[in-house]
């Protein structure tokens, strides 16, 4: 599949998804680590893509999003931002609300796509 179509499919089928370096368990970048930790702290489900394991996404996502850096967090198909914005939203309590709302949108039977 075309990488841009794959990205589109991923952010549309996962109500909350983070594109990061490494995984939430084994992050490979301090910024990715902090953003994933903020999502985990909210206690709701989220999907992740390890861009270091998927060079095609690594290369194409900045172009797709018009956003030059990683991590990138998408809620409800929309980019909310990178590490700094995610942390600011977490500190203000806004992230918790957004994720709680998005959590209702996961399909019942299907687990979130986790690469």
């Amino acid at each position: 599949m075309d990488p841009l179509d794959r990205i589109k499919e991923q952010i549309e089928s996962n109500p909350v998804i983070i594109y990061m370096k490494g995984t939430p368990q084994f992050p490979q970048c301090g910024f990715s680590s902090r953003a994933a930790a903020a999502l985990q702290d909210c206690g709701d489900k989220f999907a992740y893509v390890n861009i270091l394991a998927d060079p095609e996404i690594f290369e194409n996502l900045p172009k797709f999003a018009d956003w030059p850096t990683f991590p990138q967090v998408y809620v409800d198909g929309e980019l909310i931002g990178g590490c700094d914005i995610t942390l600011e939203l977490h500190a203000s309590g806004e992230l918790q609300k957004m994720l709680k709302e998005a959590a209702k949108k996961w399909p019942d039977e299907e687990e979130g796509q986790q690469n």
Binding site: D66, W67, P68, T69, L79, G81, C83, D84, I85, L89
Partner: peptide, 26 residues
């Protein structure tokens, strides 16, 4: 915040395309 960061990213597009690896923004 997203719009603000986009403003900064746009101003630094050349640098971001040429070797800036991380740009933390406040």
């Amino acid at each position: 915040l997203l719009q603000r960061h986009r403003l900064v990213n746009a101003a630094l597009a050349e640098e971001l395309a040429n070797g800036i690896h991380a740009l933390a923004l406040h």
